[in-house]
Amino acid sequence: MSETPPRQPEDGHNLVEVTGLKKWFPIQSGFLDRLLSRRVDYVKAVDGVSFAIRKGEVFGLAGESGSGKSTTGRLVIHLETPTEGKVLFDDVDLEELSDEEMRQLRRRMQVIYQDPMASLNPRMAVEEALTHPLQIHYPHRKDEYHDIVVEMLDKVGLSPASYYLDKYPHQISGGQRQRVVIARALITRPDLILADEPIAMADVSVRSLLLDLMKQLKREFDLTFLFITHDLATAKYICDRIGIMYLGKLVEVGELREVYGHALHPYTQALLAAVPVPDPKERRTVPLPEGEIPSAINPPSGCRFHPRCPIARLPHCSDEEPELRVLRPGHQVACHYAEDFL
């Protein structure tokens, strides 16, 4: 099923354009099943997603676990090959690149993951960890490596850099480790950063520092972010636009203030209402949808949210899958009855 292509922005240019993206993972089947060629089931992790990321913006993808947000991120930077659909990076179709061309393009797309301890090699000191990407992408600038590393450590707030150069990951704190990971991602001078829950592991009092650092580096290095998070409160502080995912589908996309201020999809409304607010005077009173997110192996027909939706009208919602459509300026929603909330 095709979806409406994303609206072209009036100004600027899209760094990433994703059209009809799908990723189905086959479910491991036993030998006997294969012998009898029984039907193979798939986990439809991402099932037809289209969006664009503008140059210089922070585009957020939010949703619950199993919504397909991380898989979408990995597809965008081609760590996974799509089952169907297309990713254009700076107008280049990633599917058409040779391995060597892809390898060169990787310099321009880097990743920050959730757990810095798992992202860093425990047996590599900071300087080595940061030199490694330079060796791969800038083999002819050996003499400059040390200076580039020192400069980058300063930029991420690890100063004096000389103190950190020979430290191993276990010798520094969690917040400092995530700064090393950020430095390593930026050292190749990328254009796009995929940040997958980058602050989820950090201590509460350290999170705001890391968010701030990412904002500041984004300005300084002219970066574009794909920011994946389950935490809508965090997204508010960094994202310019946001897409809400549910069971492999984008249900709502738009400017962050627009989506938060005028959520049009009943799922987005529920998600926003469920976020605990750090103010005892604003306790939630609205009811929440029944049940939990269903399995992506055999998702509900029609609109995937219909079994839990408070405004679902059957059989329309269980028969026909809603398409993303523009209902307010710069704000798309995939719901047959979103007009109710206009």
């Binding site: 509460v204 009092s205 999170r207 705001s208 935490d231 809508l232 409160a233 965090t234 508010k236 502080y237 203030r257 938060y260 201020g261 926003l272 976020v275 607010v277 750090p278 103010d279 604003e282």
Partner: peptide, 8 residues
């Protein structure tokens, strides 16, 4: 003051 608050 350092905890994100979703309220716009």
């Amino acid at each position: 003051q350092s905890v994100p608050n979703i309220s716009l």
